[in-house]
Design a protein around this nucleic acid. Structure first.
Lengths: 341, 341
DNA sequence: CTGTTAGCGCCTTCAG
DNA sequence: CTGAAGGCGCTAACAG
């Protein structure tokens, strides 16, 4: 009969089992120092009494917790959801719970979150990206808590890092396009302030086209991703007219919007215009025309990050910084080979 | 100079400020009983020392926490992300942090999560849907913690409920289609075991078409949502051939996949086939042809649920159960009026 | 307005 | 293998 008053505590179980508190504690935590007979007995009684250990008490006593704090820009979209899925799966099976917050891309919100989070003595902290409030790094290093920065690659992580190198990704795409004979590249992204990943990809794209061509850039601020891609494409077509033969978009949704804009204008894809997306989202698997895009290893990134963090928590050596490769996923929106081959 | 050893505790601050530990406690919590002068002084010193209250200790002392436990089926898709956004925004500004878990639609996973969650003395627990492991309800009621069941409407909530009535939603759609002159409805969903919401919507659809027509149902188990919709449509076209004039899909993604299948087969939308999605997702604004769909008030649902829960936490009366209405959002994939009008 | 006294439930020592 | 004592950092409840 479970009592409806206060929940059972370790003392109640000890009493019911006729042993000391410590025996119960050891039995439940599965550590040695209890005979198997007694352990089984205690466990059975505990279960019967509906005993649940009080995590706050445990946390206070051992001065840390099984909570992993995670900071995400947003829950929207597959990108962070996939990363999160990879991380959570790994942490979950290791017995950690996730305390999650979204910052909506505001570093002050992230800072506030980190402060609050730290009050829970988390086993680890995970931040998205590498752009943080200056105090965040300091607080985190000071707290001596394992930290993982995911999504963007950096050589100077707060602690651990697993991400993709957006510059390399841009260059990778650029090299691919150069090899296919494209000579007049464009890039369409979101407004500058919003996301520095775009800058890195543009720089990479420029590096690949260095000495060959310059890169036209549009960063319209419109409604949703489709509209932005659509509008950006129109903008580029208007200002650079026939000067553009391929456009690299910030993401697949925008690329799709851009493709629609071409269609509306009678610009043929891929004959007159190449379209390249980014991320390799599910959406792509059913579009009437398969987009050429860049697959990002989101789930793997989450898993790798969580594993390294787990190693770090257990005091095992883990690579400080790992850059995961992206992969070009050729579709029907770029040509398959150079024009004159 | 922040120490790099142990973090400052309330006692350190008290000492540095030359007051008692209780004065610091009161000053920091912003409760009365301290002169404004002292409060300001203490606060400034605390900030200087980088003092962060230990939540575990507080939680242990007051026997509850500012943690809200949330159980979601999955992070994938906008649906739960939107609900979550609404809830989190509300809880966030009330000073609560979210501990989130995803169950992947497994009630055993949910049960295990609830157990672990309860060990943190959460201020509230939020579950998705109304289908739980029997012990979950018991444990939750026993723990006397405020509980919110969100997304599905129910008349018999564990504690509080805010959701939509899927039967009514199905009937609503059915009525709409009947009025538009459709006479051979189909429904495409996911495998039965996965989601009982589909059953409710089908029942509603059937109720609307009662005495008019029967409803053909396909529940293919394929890859992603797009593929499932695509495959389901092909299945229905093959088996019921020209017998179908409109299909209600489980969600917008599937509807889009279905639309693509029609296009590939030369079945014209909406002339030969009506397509209706569900949820009113952003995707829709990205599509070349706007889907007719059913808008679900996801964010509002989250906000309403969180508000009611907050009221409940503060001991204020809150409606046990609220059903939010859905709204048909006419697009270009169903005809605008009956054929002979 | 300010301080003192007891715990909150569990775990780390250290004895038996 | 088992148990007794003390404390983790904080906050109610009571004094002054």
């Amino acid at each position: 009969m479970p009592r409806t008053r206060k929940p059972a505590k370790i003392e109640d179980v000890a009493e019911a089992a006729g042993v000391s508190i410590m025996t119960v504690s050891r039995a439940i935590r599965g550590i040695e120092g209890v005979s198997e007979k007694k352990r089984a007995e205690v466990l059975s009684i505990a279960r019967k009494m509906n005993y649940t250990p009080n995590s706050a008490a445990r946390s206070l006593a051992v001065n840390n917790s099984n909570l992993v704090g995670i900071s995400l820009p947003t829950f929207a979209g597959e990108v962070f959801a996939d990363i999160l899925k990879g991380m959570r799966g790994t942490f979950e099976s290791a017995g950690y719970a996730s305390v999650i917050d979204t910052t909506e891309y505001d570093i002050h919100a992230e800072k506030a979150w980190v402060e609050r989070l730290l009050s829970w003595q988390p086993a680890a902290v995970i931040l998205t990206g590498t752009h943080h409030h200056p105090q965040v790094r300091e607080r985190l290093e000071n707290a001596r808590v394992p930290v993982l920065q995911v999504w963007d690659h950096t050589d100077d992580p707060i602690d651990l890092n697993v991400g993709i190198d957006h510059f390399e990704a841009g260059r990778h795409v650029g090299d691919y396009l150069v090899a296919l004979g494209y000579r007049r590249p464009g890039f369409i992204g979101a407004p500058k302030s919003h996301d520095m990943r775009a800058d890195a990809r543009i720089a990479g794209l420029r590096a690949a086209f260095d000495g060959i061509a310059s890169v036209a850039v549009a960063r319209p601020a419109l409604g949703n991703a489709f509209a932005t891609g659509h509008g950006g494409m129109e903008q580029l077509l208007a200002q650079d007219g026939p000067g553009i033969d391929v456009v690299f978009f910030l993401n697949d949704h925008m690329a799709f919007g851009g493709m629609m804009a071409c269609e509306a204008r009678g610009v043929r894809v891929p004959e007159d215009m190449g379209i390249v997306g980014f991320n390799g989202l599910d959406l792509n698997s059913v579009l009437p025309v398969e987009l050429t895009t860049v697959a990002t290893p989101r789930k793997l990134m989450g898993i790798t990050g969580a594993r390294n963090l787990l190693a770090r928590i257990h005091g095992v050596e883990a690579p400080r910084s790992v850059a995961l490769p992206v992969k070009i996923q050729p579709g029907k929106t770029t040509r398959a080979q150079p024009p004159n081959s």
